[in-house]
């Protein structure tokens, strides 16, 4: 597991319109709910130009990227979660260390969404 600097900014790309709130420009907790394997995929974007960040997100999936939720690595650590960088694809990091209880996972996702900054494409 590679280390991620606490000052790093991480982007969670959003492909579903029901994961953000255009009315007040905030991220819904569901954007940070991990999949069944409990590895939430994010990307390190520190030092990249805005255009490069969107190009990276756009190349990930067949679906169009709609936006992204940016969060500082130290906020993830403050929520008692861990960062596992695998650089596959480049700059890729998984947020891991999620609790077992479904309701506790929800609370962590809410905490991350509260700290995240929404950017729409």
């Amino acid at each position: 597991m590679c280390q991620v600097d606490a000052t790093e900014i991480l982007a969670r790309y959003i492909f579903s319109k029901n994961q953000y709130r255009p009315s007040d420009h905030t991220v819904k907790y569901s954007a940070f709910m991990p999949p069944i394997n409990k590895r939430l995929s994010v990307f390190q974007i520190t030092g990249l130009a805005e255009e490069e960040i969107w190009v990276m997100g756009g190349a990930l999936r067949a679906q169009s990227v709609l936006g992204r939720a940016d969060i500082k690595a130290n906020e993830v650590i403050a929520a008692e979660l861990m960062l596992a960088a695998d650089d596959n694809p480049p700059r890729h990091v998984n947020i891991v260390g999620w609790p077992e209880e479904t309701s506790a996972i929800k609370l962590k996702a809410m905490e991350l969404a509260e700290k995240a900054q929404l950017s729409l494409k």
Binding site: S16, N18, Q19, R21, K28, Y29, S30, M33, P34, P35, I36, T102, K106
Partner: peptide, 11 residues
């Protein structure tokens, strides 16, 4: 707000 969760639940 009504959302879907990755586990298939509705939130």
């Amino acid at each position: 707000d009504i959302v879907a969760e990755p586990t298939g639940e509705i939130g």
